[in-house]
Simulated scan of single mutants.
Amino acid sequence: MKTLNPSDITIVDLGPADAAEAQRLSLQEAWPHRLEDWQFLLDISKGVGAICNGKLVGTALLTPYGETGATCNMIIVDPAMRGLGLGRKLVERLLEKAGDLECRLIATEAGLPLYEKLGFVATGKIRQHQGVVTAKLSFVGVIDATPGDLDDLVALDRVALGLDRSALVAKLIDKQPFLLLRDKNGLRGFASCRPFGRGHILGPLVARDDEAFKILLTASIARHHGKFLRVDLTDAAAAEVAVVEAAGLAKVGGGVAMTRPGIRSAEPVGDARVYALAAQALC
């Protein structure tokens, strides 16, 4: 069998038409992404892929958010192609596309050394919980969002992240209505649940205070009784991990949140915080 060299590999741009081949790679990693999940990501991202002998053997996506930041995600290398520096090459191509934007990602322990070498710094930890919701929870005070709430959702999301995720939020609200919590001062928090992987994913969940987070978390879980649900919690959500686990969502992994500063950096601009990610790919 011929020994492969880096020169045998070509880096190309990916688009929605590459979703099926990209899903094949993620299934090899036992990632749960459906074809629809890949299409969702490719619709809002700039993708690059590695081609060897006409076959897709690596992927990486850059999902831009406004003029200040982006996430790097879906970085996958076929097991047969490892050891050739392909992962680094793919991430470097993403960073070229990012230019002076701040870049964020969720790293596995195995990926940490590479990302640190490329200038990423750890900023927190993510806890992934999933399972069939077994607890019957009660909740009050939340309402379903309507398209008229979009501007408020985007504004609160920007307060929490410092990023303009208006395109993402608009796409998510088309999938399934957000849950909102309002008071006399306006929007206090929101939570999204959408089809993903083996069932649904809860996130993003953004709130101005811990009590609002707990109300939205409880309501979101309660609406999925008897169904498979995943949630990726940030450090801000640590106090309510017991609620999640008691509902039947076991901790199955996680990752390290990392940021590579850009010339145009993105910083939270108010009191809201992200308690659950839209997805590890979308942060």
Rank of each mutant, 00 (worst) to 15 (best):
G270T: 06
I51Y: 10
A70V: 05
A250H: 09
L150V: 11
K136I: 06
S26P: 06
G186M: 04
T134D: 12
E102D: 13
L41F: 12
S45H: 09
C283H: 09
Q176T: 05
H224Q: 09
L14W: 03
R188M: 04
A167N: 05
L187R: 00
V169L: 15
R158Y: 07
T218V: 14
Y65D: 00
R24A: 12
M74N: 06
I44F: 14
L233V: 06
D13Y: 12
G262E: 09
L216G: 01
R93P: 08
P6N: 13
T123A: 06
L56N: 01
H225M: 00
V132M: 09
A276Y: 08
V274R: 03
N53H: 04
F190E: 04
V206I: 15
P177H: 09
L156N: 07
G197H: 09
R93N: 01
F190T: 04
A155F: 02
I173E: 15
A246K: 13
A167V: 02
E67A: 15
L229E: 08
L216W: 07
L187W: 03
P16L: 04
S192Y: 14
I126M: 13
V243L: 07
A107K: 06
A170G: 04
A247D: 07
D164W: 09
L35F: 07
E67D: 14
A281N: 04
V133L: 08
G99W: 08
A167K: 02
L156H: 06
L161E: 12
K175I: 12
D164R: 05
R34A: 04
G83E: 10
W31K: 04
A107D: 02
T63E: 03
R188E: 06
G226Q: 10
L56E: 10
S7V: 06
C103M: 12
P64N: 06
S7Y: 02
S26G: 00
G54H: 11
E36K: 10
G203A: 01
V91S: 02
I9A: 04
V121T: 15
A236F: 12
A238G: 01
A30W: 13
G111V: 13
R188Y: 11
A20D: 13
A242S: 03
E36S: 15
A155S: 15
V91D: 07
T68S: 14
P268W: 07
G47E: 06
L217R: 05
L163K: 07
R82H: 11
L172V: 09
K97A: 12
D209N: 15
G203K: 01
L153T: 05
V256C: 03
A50H: 01
A17W: 01
R188D: 11
D164T: 10
K175T: 13
L25K: 12
H129S: 13
L35G: 09
S138V: 11
T10N: 02
N73P: 03
A155G: 01
T259Q: 00
Y275E: 05
P204D: 08
I75R: 05
E102L: 09
I221Q: 10
P64H: 02
F213P: 06
L202I: 00
A222I: 04
